[in-house]
Amino acid sequence: MEAMLEIADVVTAYGKIEALKGVSLSAAKGRITCLLGPNGAGKTTLMMSIAGALKPRQGSIRLEGSELVGLSPARIVGNGVALVPENRLVFPQMSVRENLLAGAYQRNDSGEVTADIERMYARFPRLKERREQLAGTLSGGEQQMLAVARALMSRPRLLLMDEPSLGLAPIVVKEIFGIIAELNREGVTIFLVEQNAHLALQVAHHFYLMEQGRVTFSGNPGELAEDEVIKRAYLGTRRSAG
């Protein structure tokens, strides 16, 4: 299968501490790839490295063959990658509409941008009702929708999502995952970090397990019993063994 994203031997460090110790994985075009792992495994670090907010010390990150390492976050967005960051990070003092416009910052087709905003409102009706409300006053679930919509506004080829279910009520999580599946059916390649292994395995075509900065398992849902995945994703083999 053709790869959208290919990551090879990436090392990213905070000061002296290596949070990623040589990560290699790939995300197939048009598919949902999921990354699972316990707290502190380095999932967010990997997402930030792909998006260019952290600079890997070593290794390569390729988007359909072209190297992303060394580009600024803005250039990476321009190349068609958008990240829905952990904890959403909406712009709290800006209206819902302005948040969406910020997502389309690099686009020069203002007519199409307006049309896309309408499409987002159609997909997320609750955002439409609150279009002039300040984003900081939205509920957590609404903010998550806004963060997804904002990322989509750049019309990405690859959508990165870092724990979209974090801190949300189960109903809202279901809704978000419905949207993820729907986006994927429309052709968006998705690379998703998730703690909720059960839900992740339902939508993913392929998944990776990550522990302490390394990929420890790669497979398709069904290849590993779900309770084993959950055990590893929450606890990690190393820690549970030791």
Partner: peptide, 25 residues
């Protein structure tokens, strides 16, 4: 203006701004 939007986004959260494609520097 778009420039102003970018500037305000940076003020609110410069990480989120750069992830939205705004050239912060």
């Amino acid at each position: 203006t778009r420039f102003g939007l970018g500037l305000r986004a940076i003020v609110e959260n410069s990480l989120a701004a750069s992830l939205s494609g705004i050239d912060v520097e």
